[in-house]
């Protein structure tokens, strides 16, 4: 029957297949719990797995400034962008000052990973506030680097650690990064000639986009998640899900690489 694997492994393996040889993948540093897992740890494992399977020339940029780190030398997940754990990890390059060693506005970043408190059915993301901007119900940290992720990178993988109604909404309260308003055509009208969200990954499913219509749709549903649970946790209509496939299970050899080579101590994906 099924091989035993964790949800984190399922996501990492499926993500790894998205990356092509020769690309450059960018992950920033989120700190603390689920956010760190979804936008830092899982993407690192996915990229490293791609390097060890089909994409040896994939370049990893970790925490925005560490090129191709030796992840097996991590003793803990770094919790600050410029902490000593990062400074001292063996790597090929440290990108220390802006403008960096890459030209992201010329398209040197193939893909990145981001998250927010809300995403809507057009793929717009919000990391700023809930409610009215000048007197919000909830104020978050701000736009940070997300506008650039959504307009300058080749594509963006949106990593949402919680699949809840309030996070998956018809319309975000603040657009930090632009999805597909009126599809790709709409992006072009806004001057956005590149990039945009590619997939949205959650603990329950993987979304992709109809980029012509500019609409999010379910690409696959994770094993053991019911259609009802998925719709009940989502704030917008998902439509008919009867023909939706399950997210593909990881293969034995992929799990072996993750568990034995990439993350032998469970520092990135945890042990359960």
């Amino acid at each position: 029957m099924n091989i035993d694997y964790t949800l984190n492994e399922l996501i990492a393996v499926n993500l790894s297949k998205e990356f092509k040889n020769g690309e450059v993948g960018f992950t920033g540093l989120a700190t603390g719990g689920p956010a760190a897992l979804y936008i830092t740890a899982i993407p690192l494992v996915a990229m490293e797995l791609a390097r060890r399977t089909h994409a040896p020339d994939l370049n990893i940029i970790f925490a925005g400034w560490i090129q191709n780190p030796d992840l097996s030398k991590l003793t803990r997940l770094p919790n600050a962008e410029y902490d000593e754990t990062l400074r001292d990890i063996p790597c090929e390059g440290q990108y220390l000052t802006y403008p960096y060693q890459y030209s992201f506005r010329r398209g040197s970043i193939s893909f990145g990973f981001g998250s927010g408190i809300q995403i809507d059915k057009q793929g717009n993301i919000n990391s700023v506030c809930i409610g009215n901007h000048d007197k919000p119900r909830v104020r978050m940290v701000g736009p940070i680097f997300l506008p650039e992720h959504f307009s300058m990178f080749g594509r963006e993988y949106v990593m949402m650690p919680h699949h809840e109604k309030r996070a998956f909404t018809n319309k975000v309260d603040y657009i930090t990064g632009v999805g597909y308003p009126d599809g790709k055509k709409g992006r072009k009208k806004l001057g956005l000639t590149r990039g945009g969200p590619e997939l949205v990954i959650t603990p329950k499913c993987i979304f992709d986009f109809d980029k012509i219509k500019g609409k999010i749709k379910v690409r696959s549903i994770h094993p053991n998640v019911s259609l009802k649970d998925l719709q009940d946790s989502t704030g917008f209509e998902l439509g008919n899900l009867n023909n939706i496939k399950n997210t593909k299970s990881p293969q034995k050899h992929e799990l072996k690489i993750i568990r034995e080579d990439i993350d032998p101590h469970g520092i990135l994906l945890g042990n359960n």
Binding site: H133, P143, V178, R187, K189, L190, G191, L192
Partner: peptide, 12 residues
């Protein structure tokens, strides 16, 4: 700056 169109950063 390129890439700011459509954001509430610009709108507000």
């Amino acid at each position: 700056a390129a890439g700011l169109g459509g954001t509430d950063i610009v709108k507000l």
